[in-house]
Design a protein around this nucleic acid. Sequence first.
DNA 1: CGCAATCAGGACCGGAGGCGTCCTGATTGT
DNA 2: ACAATCAGGACGCCTCCGGTCCTGATTGCG
Lengths: 150, 150
Amino acid sequence: MFRLSKLSDYAVVLLSELGRANEGAVRNASGLAAATGIAEPTVAKVLKLLAGGGLVTSQRGAHGGYRLARPLAAIPIADVIAAIEGPIALTACVDGHVGACEVECSCPVRGRWDPVNAAIRHALSEITLADMACPAWTLTGAARLAEPVV
Amino acid sequence: MFRLSKLSDYAVVLLSELGRANEGAVRNASGLAAATGIAEPTVAKVLKLLAGGGLVTSQRGAHGGYRLARPLAAIPIADVIAAIEGPIALTACVDGHVGACEVECSCPVRGRWDPVNAAIRHALSEITLADMACPAWTLTGAARLAEPVV
DNA sequence: CGCAATCAGGACCGGAGGCGTCCTGATTGT
DNA sequence: ACAATCAGGACGCCTCCGGTCCTGATTGCG
C-alpha cells in the first residue's frame, strides 16, 4: 500500500479548512488547530511546508497568519503531496542516482518505474482539492462544519 | 514521494527475469538470485509472496522452482504491488476502519482519498510488466533479451 | 518606542515498521 | 532413503516518520 504520509492528510484537511468561508481570510495556526482538531505544533509544521511549496501565503507579525495562494479548485493533490513529501517518485533509485546502483547493468530497475511514476503523477494532477472536498459533508453535516468542532 | 517498498522493486526484476527466455521454464530461487544479483534469502521471500499472490506457480521438491503463472503482458503492476505490499491504499484510515478515527465527525479524511486511490489503482492497472520491460533494452539491446543474460 | 503576537527554520527524540536473515517443516524427484 | 527445494513463520537491526520544542525574525498595536 502506498503509505502516504499522515502529514499530507493533515495538509488536505488544513487546506480545505482554509478554503472554506471567505477564501481571502487570514487564519493563524492556533485557530486552524482548534478548527481541525490537529495538534498545534503539527499544524504549524504542515503550514510551513505548504508555505514553502507556495500553496499558501504567510503573513508574519501580529494578526498574521496564512491564506490560500489559489482557490482549492486550482490545487491538484499532486502539488500538496509534493509540498509535504517532496517530489513524487516511487523509489529512491528512480530520480537521479544514475550509476549509484551496485548491480548496474543487470539492474533492470533504472528508468523502469518511469511510466508508472508518470501515470501516477498524471492521475494526481487531475484531482484537485475541490474534488476531494467533503463527500460526506455536503450531504449530511455541512452546517456542522461552519463552527469549529472539538 | 510514494515510498514504494524495495521488495516490489525486486519483484519486478524477478518477474522480468522469469519472463525472459522461455516463459514455461522452471527456475529455482538460487538461480534467480545469481541472475539478478539480489541476495538469495530476499529472493526466496519475494518469490513466496508472489506465489501467494498467484503471480508465479511453484514446484516443490527436487528440481522444483518457480515459473510465471501468466505472461508478463497479463500482469498489471498493480497486481505485483498488491502481492508484495497488500491492498493498494494511500492511508490506513481509508479502507474500512470506520469509526476508529478519534476525531470522528471532524475528521474530513474518511472517504476523501477514495477518488485518489481509485485513480492510482486505475493507473497501475493499465501498466503491465511487459510495458515496464526495458525502456533502454528495447532500444539498444533487444537482441540481448532473447537470450538469458548474466 | 517597547511589547506582544505570529511565522520561519532547524534540532531533537521516541516509536513504528520495513528489510533482510535464519530456522524448521513439508514435499518431491532420484 | 536421501537430497533438493519450497512454505511459513520468527526475529533483530535499522532507517525514517511523527510530533514537539526552541530560538530568531517580522510586524502591528498601545
